[in-house]
Nucleic acid binder design. Structure first.
Lengths: 361, 361
DNA sequence: CTGTTAGCGCCTTCAT
DNA sequence: ATGAAGGCGCTAACAG
């Protein structure tokens, strides 16, 4: 940068300048701009309470010094923070990335910003980050918790910081939460198959203690029960990843049971696993012999060579709504009752059910 | 939608303090434990300087009050923070998720924690989060910058906060950085094809002003030039997504030019796009007629129905190394010189080049 | 409009 | 081992 000839002698003893110059503070800015500390604060927080010329001078000093306001001090003094934290169960799952983006957008519009923490499917990390955020005194926290019975409502997640849950419904309604109607998602998936004329359907997914999986199964069950002569078989897997789908696929391919003509998978990954196995198995052409619908609208579900029909959860919307709920609480505009917002999933038909009738866009 | 009859009284009763009670402070804890403020601070930060019985009393009070230490005040007073921030170009890209995880693991081992910000391929957001982190006085920042000429070295990214770059090499070596050897990656990809006997190769990718793409191309060029009679054709795309791959694929499939037998794609997405088009085109069977190798080891590259051979960047390692470099700087253990750590990419052969010879583990 | 002055909650010597 | 006091950088009244 420039090397303006600063006279060291002129600088008063209070300001020491070593090789590692200390961060300039508002006091330094005030001094340079020949105004008082309060004025600097005002030009930063209440620009309209400062004359134009003064503000310009202050801003100039700020730039000259490379001053960056200390947010720790700020939120300590002001008692409020402008950032909210989001703790995500698994950044590897694009749904959570979508949720974060939705929240970020909504928050940014209201002048706040979002910091993300990744639990990486680890309950300890989740709890740790919850605490980190609370210690940092963020304005509020959005939590996309691990879906397992383990986190079943520890008395309170934070002592005071507002929290809203996303993609998980609090049993006790201690928190507001936004979820999708998993049951309806399962219903829609099965319904889609039924509408296509499929009648011998299987639901592949698990483990069943995962709330979402159970709900999706219930929904599929309900749809099948509505149709005369349709049957639903349940095939439990140990997880919702591709390998589980493959295992189930091999199992189905090997079995001599009556041929199925449709399957509802509890996740896109399972669906992809199934399809990969089916494609290598005579008599299991997808979707001719057997149609497959997944769940999640994982980004790559649409990119596999047989794009997977899927039930899409409105991730960004979920994040946006959660952010709104949280801000309501932060700003005290919240209704006294905690609310649960249920967002509708939608099915996105693709080649794995429609076949050649399907065209991308 | 059950309506379990929750008694509101019980809900509010779960809280030990009233709803509007202010957060307990260390002073409150001190009072309850009948010790002085300094002692509370010590039992928190220098446990060994406090008698066992006293500490127990203090800890008890903390639990009883649900006290959560104010990190803003702490880092203000102590002048040091225990959290570092990472700004990622695109959370939608699994490489960056890996980098974050690697960094997180390394940092956690050293008692620090990681907060993530997502630039979402938006330079404004990137800059904004850089500033947010600096304002929050994080101990340091890891930046995985947008790869574009635009960010070309604005004088300084932060005024004082230590920064290390990951997945991007600083021209001016103002920052330490950790990158992979893109050129070598391109070399390895082409080499892989050549080793398989392919000779008429195309490099598909772009735009060329993306540093990484350019380097990869150079590497591929070098490998091809080493082999007598091998040719390399360059096909520029407008981006590195699936659609770009498809466009290029259609272009190749339509052209009547001499048949290619191998292609190095600048990204897995391009590779997938190519493959999807090829699979629908007679005479373009993958890998029999034409072998395809991608780049990035995107999570789903291995999950497409024709698993894509790819060049893998060691994301977690990159994050871990970056975290190490950053901590060195934070703790003053850094060498005076900024360093550049170059990590080697590796090729992961899969079905798109090996064909049936390939078996998943 | 601008300057002054208390703290915000905690850490850190320095005595005791 | 414990207590008392000063100050970290900033905001928010309140005075001028």
């Amino acid at each position: 940068m420039d090397s303006c000839p600063v006279s060291e002698a002129i600088i008063s003893g209070t300001t020491k300048r070593g090789n590692d110059a200390p961060r300039p503070s508002m006091a330094d800015v005030a001094r340079l701009a020949s105004v008082s500390l309060g004025t600097v604060s005002n030009t930063l927080n209440n620009p309209d309470k400062v004359s134009d010329s003064t503000r310009r001078r202050v801003l100039g000093a700020i730039a000259e010094l490379g001053f960056v306001r200390n947010d720790a001090a700020r939120s300590l003094a002001a008692g409020t923070s402008t950032t909210v934290g989001i703790v995500l169960a698994d950044l590897g799952n694009s749904l959570f990335v979508d949720i974060a983006r939705g929240a970020e957008t909504a928050l940014r519009r209201r002048g706040m910003n979002l910091l993300i923490a990744d639990s990486a499917i680890d309950i300890d990390r989740q709890m740790n980050y919850l605490q980190t955020f609370e210690q940092a005194r963020v304005a509020g926290i959005i939590l996309a918790p691990l879906d397992s019975a383990i986190i079943e409502e520890p008395t309170r997640l934070t002592s005071t910081t507002p929290v809203v849950l996303v993609n998980y419904e609090s049993r006790r309604h201690v928190y507001s939460d936004v979820v999708t109607d998993e049951r309806r998602g399962g219903y829609l998936a099965a319904r889609h198959l039924l509408d296509l004329g499929r009648r011998r359907i299987a639901f592949v997914g698990g483990p069943l203690f995962l709330t979402a999986v159970e709900r999706r199964y219930e929904g599929a069950r309900a749809a099948v029960d509505e149709v005369e002569g349709a049957t639903l078989e349940f095939i439990e897997t140990l997880g919702v990843n591709i390998k589980h789908g493959k295992q189930a696929g091999r199992q189905l391919a090997a079995a001599s049971r009556p041929q199925l003509d449709g399957v509802v998978a509890a996740s896109d990954l399972i669906a992809i696993g199934l399809i990969q196995v089916f494609e290598e198995t005579p008599g299991f052409s997808v979707p001719r012999d057997i149609a497959v619908v997944g769940y999640d609208n994982n980004h790559f579900a649409s990119e596999s060579s047989i794009p997977v029909s899927t039930v899409s959860q409105p991730g960004e919307e979920m994040g946006g709504v959660a952010a709104g709920l949280l801000l309501d609480e932060i700003w005290g505009r919240a209704k006294s009752e905690k609310q649960t917002v249920v967002l509708p999933p939608t099915v996105i038909p693709r080649k794995s059910t429609l076949g050649d009738a399907w065209r991308r866009d």
